[in-house]
Amino acid sequence: MTTPSFEPIVHAAVDQVLRTQFRETAVALGSTPEMPVGPGAWLHSSVAIFGQLSSDVVLSVPDELAGHLAARMLSLPDGTPVDDSDKRDLAGEMCNMLAGRISEAFHSGGHFYDLGTPTVSRELSTGAASPELLFSGTWQCTGQTFSLAIHLRPTQA
């Protein structure tokens, strides 16, 4: 199959998810900074897309932004502290929504794609083998940077 042009698909997905669910906007950054590796104040979530072009959508979001967006989702006043489980759920659910919108764009090409369940970690796994990077982008929302990458999912033997 022809590999889709990820950039417009992903940017539209980020815009739709932030506007609809969080009443927020994000600005795409021109350069892609190094993805954070190792434990820290970041949450990393991953959702598998299964289909002809099976891939993993990986979202990395700073703890503070996760808290802000979780509060927005619950219509709490900005600055309201939220607990860690809500921040983790935010990272997983935001990645799930982005993967959903990205896979929906794939459907328009006549191929059906399904989603896995989100996994969330405070440590970005680099994996034993480096999967092929299909897309990588970085955005800024409320002054904080978050990243989204799509890796080709290794074919099962």
Binding site: Q16, T20, N96, M97, G100, S103, E104, H107, F112, D114
Partner: peptide
């Protein structure tokens, strides 16, 4: 209420009598 808009899933759900399908992100 799901992020999954796979047409096969939507059809399966409809065959089970569910017509209301809200896609995440949702209003």
């Amino acid at each position: 209420l799901t992020a999954n808009s796979n047409p096969e899933t939507v059809s399966s759900v409809a065959r089970l009598g569910v017509r209301e399908y809200v896609i995440k992100p949702f209003e």
